[in-house]
Design a protein around this nucleic acid. Structure first.
Lengths: 163, 163
DNA sequence: TTTGCAAATGTTATAATGTTGCAAATTTCA
DNA sequence: TGAAATTTGCAACATTATAACATTTGCAAA
C-alpha cells in the first residue's frame, strides 16, 4: 500500500469534492464573487476528475447534463475559477485541475505523470525561493510562475520496474 | 548602458543568428541528424526574432519566402529542432524560442516579459536542484521540467516607474 | 415597485493551434 | 544501382480558444 500523499492513493474522492466545493463557496463569499450554478458545476466536474480536464471535456459533460453550453460558457467559468484561485491551468496540457491549496497563498508546482495522467500539486518553498532568486539576479519582476514537471509517478514507476 | 545579459540589450543580432546556425550544424552533425534547408530556415527565423514565434508565424514567413508550406512542415521542423535541443517551446505562449544553451546539458528557465514580449532563457542550478528535491520527496521521476516566469523585465520595469 | 445598471449568460461564428494519413520525393547505404 | 529509411508535400481534419453582440439576471437606488 502506497504511503505517498499522491492523489491517486485510494480514498473517497466524493469527500474531497464536497470539501472543495464548500471551500469554494466560502472563498467566493469572502471575495464577493458569485459562484453561480454553472461555475460551481464546472468546478465540481474538474474536482471529480483526478486527471486534468480540458475545456471541451467539461463541455461534453455539461452536454450530458442537458446543459446546452457553448465553449465561451466553459471558458468563462474556468477564467472565473482561476481568478478565484480555485483551479489551475496546466499550460503543457491545455487542461485544468482543482487547486488543492485554495485560499492559501501559494506557488503551485505540478507533478504530471505521463503514464497514468494524474497530477499532483505541491507547494515547494525551496523552489519558489530559488525561482525568486534567479529572477532577482536578472532584475526581473515575476508575476506568474509556471512550474510543470512531466515524468513518472511512484505507482507507475514501480509498474515499469516489474516489467 | 545596461549591464544585464538580457537579449534586448542592443547588439548585432545577425551575429547571434549566424552563430546559432553554425552551432546547429555542428550539433546536428554530431547527432547524425540532418539539418535540411527547411529545418535550418525555420531555426533561422526563430533566432531572428527575439520574441517567441508561433508555428503559424513561422508559416507566414515561409509563405513570404515563396515556400508553399503547410502546417505539418513547420511542426515537423519544430519537433526536429526541439529534439536536437536547438529550440524550446514555451508552453504558456504556444511559441518557440531559440535555445541559447544548445549543445550543453541544461535545464532551461524562461523569463517572459509581458510588456515587451522578450524572453530570456536562464540556467539556474539552484532552481533545478530545488525542483529535483521536491520531486524526489514525492518519489516522482522527473522527465521534462517546464519553468516559465511571466513578469516584467528590467527595461520595462524602469519605464513604468517613470510613468 | 420599478427603473436602471452591472454582471453573467446565451448564441453564432470564427480564429488560432495542432494532428493524421498517405503519397511522392529524396537521401542513405549496402 | 536499388532497396530501405527518412523527409517532404499535401489535403483534410481535430482541438483549443476567442470575438462580437444579444439577452437575461441580480441587485440596489429612486
Amino acid at each position: 500500500m502506497p504511503t505517498s500523499a499522491l492523489p491517486y492513493r485510494p480514498h473517497n474522492h466524493d469527500i474531497c469534492v464536497a470539501q472543495a466545493l464548500a471551500d469554494a463557496r466560502t472563498i467566493c463569499q469572502q471575495h464577493n464573487a458569485r459562484l453561480t450554478p454553472t461555475r460551481e458545476r464546472v468546478l465540481e466536474l474538474i474536482w471529480q476528475s483526478h486527471k486534468p480536464l480540458g475545456a471541451y471535456d467539461v463541455l461534453a459533460v455539461l452536454a450530458e447534463d442537458g446543459h446546452n453550453a457553448a465553449p465561451p460558457t466553459v471558458y468563462r467559468a474556468l477564467d472565473f475559477l482561476q481568478q478565484q484561485g480555485l483551479v489551475h491551468r496546466i499550460a503543457s496540457l491545455n487542461a485544468f485541475v482543482g487547486c488543492t491549496h485554495a485560499g492559501k497563498r501559494h506557488n503551485g508546482l505540478f507533478l504530471i505523470c505521463r503514464d497514468c495522467g494524474n497530477v499532483l500539486e505541491l507547494t515547494a518553498p525551496g523552489v519558489s525561493q530559488a525561482v525568486s532568486e534567479a529572477a532577482v539576479a536578472e532584475a526581473f519582476k515575476p508575476d506568474e510562475v509556471t512550474i510543470e514537471i512531466a515524468g513518472t509517478c511512484p505507482a507507475c514507476h514501480v509498474d515499469t520496474h516489474h516489467a
